[in-house]
């Protein structure tokens, strides 16, 4: 009985997230330029297991990937920093989006 009661809690608890920050900037183009622009998005992650952090350059990696995704002009760049929680580990995520023209 206890196991049956515990199970939904475990399922519910194993997939939580926390968004720490969303930042956007740079809507400076005219409308004509924005309508022609293409939307680009990259995500990089950092795994932390038992408080040991790996991939410590994941933010720089996101910026590099975004630049590679758009060789031209990037505007309206937004950054979301969030964490997905887990059992003695968690994953920090950086999601960068922008308009490429």
């Amino acid at each position: 009985m206890k196991v049956l009661l515990l199970l939904p809690f475990m399922l519910l608890a194993g997939c939580t997230h926390s968004i720490h920050m969303v930042h956007s900037d740079g809507f400076t183009e005219r409308l004509q330029e924005i309508t022609k622009a293409r939307y680009v998005e990259v995500e990089t992650t950092q795994d932390v297991v038992f408080f040991f952090a790996f991939d410590t350059d994941y933010v720089d990696e996101a910026k590099t990937k975004l630049e590679q995704a758009c060789p031209g002009r990037l505007s309206a760049v937004s950054t979301q920093y969030s964490t997905s929680h887990g059992f003695f580990h968690w994953t920090n995520k950086i999601l960068m989006k922008g308009m490429c023209s």
Partner: peptide, 15 residues
């Protein structure tokens, strides 16, 4: 233990 990690406010179920 199943929800370890830094958090801002309460955890949500959709990131």
């Amino acid at each position: 233990m199943f929800n370890m990690g830094p958090r801002t406010g309460n955890p949500v179920y959709n990131d």
